[in-house]
């Protein structure tokens, strides 16, 4: 049951916001299109990972590629939301520096047989920081609509909930991987990954709600 949830249901939940976007594609414009691009990329990576795992091939290298693509697309998404020029420059700089850091990490520190815990946790901190900045700057602006009517609020909440909560997991992924053989019978071991799966599903549901609310932003 847990295997079904982790292998198929969690990766498949990415199709929920994708379908919602397609149903609301006339109203979901601007930054939300970039978010849709991110979801499509996630779906492709998830399918590839499931296929590789089914064929008993290693798929951890995908996570290294996914981390770079995810960060770049999400930062592009945030650039569309940030009005301040200086903050935009910082985000552009991060978008160039982070892939460089990922390549250095892959070549010299954590190769494709390890989790990229260093860069994945840095990614989480970047996303948390930029999300929090967007939140604060949008609060400082004149409020035009109810919080729940603004699609961006739902998306940023989803990102914050996922990346902040999963940060601990990103930090200790290699530890978990190293102990997989000896601790696989520990029920807590399953709970860690199930919790992560639920966080991911919550994020995708919040993205879907954001797409539904996109008609209010026009």
């Amino acid at each position: 049951m847990i295997n079904l949830f982790l292998t198929y249901i969690v990766p498949g939940s990415v199709f929920f916001p994708i379908l919602v976007f397609l149903l609301h594609r006339k109203t979901a414009t601007g930054a939300l299109v970039l978010l849709f691009g991110y979801l499509v990329m996630s779906a492709i990576v998830n399918i590839t990972a499931v296929v590789l795992a089914t064929l008993h091939h290693r798929n951890l290298w995908l996570l290294h590629v996914y981390t770079v693509l995810e960060t770049v697309i999400l930062l592009l998404f945030f650039i569309r939301l940030i009005p301040a020029r200086r903050a935009k420059t910082v985000v552009w700089s991060l978008m160039i520096l982070f892939p460089v850091a990922c390549i250095v990490n892959w070549l010299f520190l954590q190769n494709s047989s390890n989790f990229n815990t260093y860069t994945r946790s840095i990614e989480a901190i970047i996303i948390i920081g930029v999300s929090a900045y967007c939140w604060v700057s949008s609060s400082a602006e004149t409020v035009r609509m109810r919080w729940t009517d603004n699609p961006v609020n739902w998306v940023i909440s989803g990102l914050l909930l996922y990346f902040a909560s999963a940060l601990f997991l990103f930090l200790f992924s290699n530890y978990l991987l190293a102990n997989t053989q000896t601790k696989a019978d520990d029920p807590i071991w399953d709970i860690v990954w199930v919790t992560h799966g639920f966080l991911l599903v919550i994020m995708y549901i919040l993205f879907g709600i954001g797409f539904i609310k996109s008609k209010n932003a026009r």
Partner: peptide, 22 residues
Amino acid sequence: DNLYYLIVVGMLGVFLLIALMI
């Protein structure tokens, strides 16, 4: 200490904190 347990509790704690902020 059971690190798995600490990770789960840490994740849930941060989740609640962010949910409260929202």
